[in-house]
Design a protein around this nucleic acid. Structure first.
Lengths: 251, 251
DNA sequence: AAGTGGTCTAGACCACTAA
DNA sequence: TAGTGGTCTAGACCACTTA
């Protein structure tokens, strides 16, 4: 058997049973079919499902295609796979999803609003406790602190406080941040090897409340981000969103 | 050349240039190498990187292997791929990451603490406004409302309020929830085709504050989840976490 | 020792899109 | 129309795990 295969229009391999079974050829189709069987209750939580080999034969495709489909399902936490054991439908309601962290500008424009940026202040100052811990600096090492705000259609959308360490990165003149958000300047000029992100609920402090035009003490959703370059923390950003803001996603 | 390849221990294909270039054979190695070149600045943000074909030749592996590596990078938002155009290093700081939503019990045990569950109340009652909207029911349709709390090593960790619609799902006797969290019972007994999740910051109401042993009005992190079966909303859960709680992840 | 998933390969065709 | 990524296939070997 030396002739090349056509790859995407294979003929029925044998005259075995199941001649009427529709062939599922793409990994998306396999993915959907397996998901259907799980959701319909055919394959209940905790159950072992057929092996890749069996599914490939049943659905009429290569094992690699089944593998791709099942890998996506495993990545989503829908199924759990173990060598030698097989593939199980996940019993718990544990799920995974992809969380996108776009730029603020992008986030606003996705909502269909016009984004505008305004610098609030930009000064070299001694770090507070959180900044000392995040950037691994002492209380006597001055940092650059930039406060700014984004508006969506002229309503306050989010305010940012970002601490930058001038000893580990070449920072621009302060005037630059009057025109461009630190986040955008950073992404173009400072390489990052890792970001640690936290989401927390906290009470708005004085500056944040003034920026977002809310009462001090109002709950705000805070997204913290520490950017690290080869193990050295470079920037520590905190984005604060007013109470009506929601981080939304599907599973 | 009809002899089969061994797949994982191929010999050098030709006596071309670059005999000293180490062959990168696994998609993880390719992934790491490409990431290294991006982070080192060799391939700056916005730049086109070589095609799959070129990388496969340079690194000495199959194009499918390069494809797998680059696909993972694209899934993380590190690069952007377009047919006919090529692959670019993402210019913005937009990033994606996988967010895990484990069961509360799992979450607590991952922290190394002992999880305990306690039912607060369980009653059939008319929906509030949020529940009406989430479950698409009218103000006169009674729902089952279950309030409960999880503790980690006897400290309040999270409290839950969940609304269940008895008209679209067979619900158990109320006593069941005295022993088992609704979340766990649901995952075993009610299939779900979609979940919509929101993360918000809000002020603790009276019941939530009592349950978490905090002052009413304290900011809490709330994770809302609407489970849907074939388009019909079945349950509406709200998990409230006290202020020190952080949703943490890397990028 | 054996079974299952994980991955690599070489070749092929398809889908999309800029020119 | 041509170039690039997206995917499928058949076969092979490896890695991990249970028995």
């Amino acid at each position: 058997m030396v002739t090349t295969t056509t790859g995407t229009t294979p003929l029925v391999r044998s005259s075995g049973p199941d001649l009427h079974r529709k062939r599922l050829n793409t990994w998306q189709a396999i993915h959907a079919e397996v998901l259907r069987r799980i959701r319909s209750g055919d394959w209940p939580p905790g159950e072992l499902i057929p092996t890749e080999q069996m599914l490939a034969v049943e659905l009429g495709c290569a094992r690699a295609t089944v593998n791709r489909a099942l890998r996506e399902l495993a990545d989503s936490g829908i199924i759990e796979r173990r060598r030698k054991v097989g593939t199980r439908v996940t019993a718990s309601s544990a799920r995974r999803t992809t969380l996108r962290l776009p730029t603020i500008r992008n986030e606003i424009e996705t909502l269909g609003a016009r984004a505008s940026y305004a610098l609030t202040s930009c000064e070299t100052t001694l770090p507070n406790l959180a900044a000392m811990r995040a950037l691994h600096v002492g209380a006597d090492e001055p940092l650059l602190l930039v406060l700014s705000r984004f508006s969506a259609d002229d309503r306050p959308h989010c305010c940012e406080a970002i601490w930058l360490n001038p000893r580990v990165a070449d920072l621009p003149d302060a005037e630059v941040f009057a025109l461009e958000p630190p986040q955008e300047w950073l992404s173009r000029n400072l390489p990052v090897t890792q970001s640690d992100v936290s989401i927390i609920a906290e009470a708005a402090d004085e500056a944040c409340a003034r920026s977002l035009e809310i009462e001090p003490g109002t709950p705000v959703l805070t997204i913290e981000r520490v950017n690290t370059l080869h193990g050295t923390p470079v920037s520590f950003a905190r984005h604060h969103y007013p109470p009506q803001h929601r981080l939304v996603f599907d599973i």
